[in-house]
Design a protein around this nucleic acid. Structure first.
Lengths: 223, 223
DNA sequence: ATACAATTCAAACGTTCGTTTTAATTGTGT
DNA sequence: ACACAATTAAAACGAACGTTTGAATTGTAT
């Protein structure tokens, strides 16, 4: 063993893979690109992680565990303060999406890179990724769905779930930072990174809450 | 030449590629998978399209040209009826996103498959795809941005563009139909396909309009 | 019917892929 | 120091990749 608890090679690979999976996607990144960027031997990926798939899962898990724990903690705290009363939708939405967006300011939690990776990964076609994500998110999604049901007792559950789905899409695309249509051409370069994040969070939260609380479509029957 | 104006092989390849790119993504689909599914010779992709990249562009262009023409037409018509007056945001949002979603009912326009492909493609990492999409969308995006600016004269332009961005993300994710977190578990299987589409469109439109018209975040200065 | 272009076909091109192997090296506990 | 496990290293594995080649076949004019 080394001085550090986990070998440095192990984390060098995770960091390189995180960056490359973010930029080129899972299929577009080769193990050789990863070991080359990490400056480690080609065989190191299979030695330390077993396979490329297992590496992808390790990359995602390292950060996701932290986000989802923080999401649980945020809901615990809010519900404790509310003692029994339903939460405000804004608290729930902030607990789920705000928690993720605030991670971008903390480089020790992956910073912007991991945030973009998560945004991208939500639409990765590979089956094992979707399976992994669904399992990794299952508990936290259930908690937040329940909280939303309680916060919006007059809204049919199916409608709430759909709007959760739409919020996920809007957020994923926003943090992926790709802007395929080059819509947002006037990026304010005159501001520092921190201000940008704050603004994105404010803008996104306004949008998500507006969507969540929008009048229901006419057809819908009660839950 | 054959009886048909364009060779059947040409379209067989496009159809197969559309389906496979949708399911496995661009990098996850090989030319051999395409020619095998299309039941044509391996060399046919390069003979008819030149390269795998050119094939991807052809797959996207075949349908996108039609959607974007229809989007332009919808805005032309609405603006003609309004003669001079700004449009309602709902008309603009429906012109852009509703036009796309209504294509799913028309199999001759790619139906559900192409809709899913477009949703997926918005987050494809490959650079040539993003370049292609930006060029293909440039005109229609400009038209719709302008229409939104006119429809919402009191909202700073930067905020409108960001909300357009969020709407794109929500829609892309919704039509991609992946649902990475298996959020929407209670898909109503008791209804036919057409009803599903109508419901998704209604639900999405309500959400998008709610987000678009939400109260602005506090920080924002006037445009 | 003949000439010529368009298309299809089988085969192979060189490259890159994820992974494995085997040996060399480094670190650790006694 | 020595024995042994953990890690690194160079090299190679077979498979799959996108693409090209050149001959065989098909279609289309005259």
């Amino acid at each position: 063993m080394e001085a550090t608890s986990v070998s440095e090679t192990h984390e060098r690979i995770l960091d390189a893979a995180e960056r490359l999976f973010t930029e080129f996607g899972y299929e577009g990144t080769s193990t050789r690109m990863v070991t080359s960027e990490a400056k480690v031997n080609l065989a190191a990926v299979n030695y330390h992680f077993g396979s490329k798939e297992a590496l992808m899962e390790a990359v995602l898990r390292r950060r996701l565990v932290i986000v989802n724990e923080e999401r649980m903690r945020a809901l615990d705290e809010a519900e404790a303060k509310a003692n029994g009363q339903p939460l405000k939708p804004s608290q729930i939405v902030d607990g789920f999406f705000g928690t993720l967006l605030r991670m971008a300011e903390d480089d020790s939690k992956g910073g912007q890179t991991f945030q973009r990776l998560i945004g991208r990964t939500m639409t990765e076609p590979a089956n094992f990724i979707r399976t992994f994500l669904a399992a990794e998110y299952a508990d936290v999604v259930e908690r937040y769905k329940t909280a939303l049901f309680k916060a919006l007792p007059d809204v049919p559950k199916a409608e709430i779930v759909w709007r959760f789905h739409f919020m996920l899409g809007a957020t994923s695309y926003a943090i992926a930072g790709t802007d395929a249509l080059q819509l947002v051409t006037d990026w304010e370069v005159d501001e520092d990174e921190g201000t940008q994040h704050e603004k994105l969070l404010s803008r996104l939260m306004s949008f998500l809450l507006g969507g969540l609380r929008a009048p229901l479509p006419q057809f819908s029957e009660p839950s």
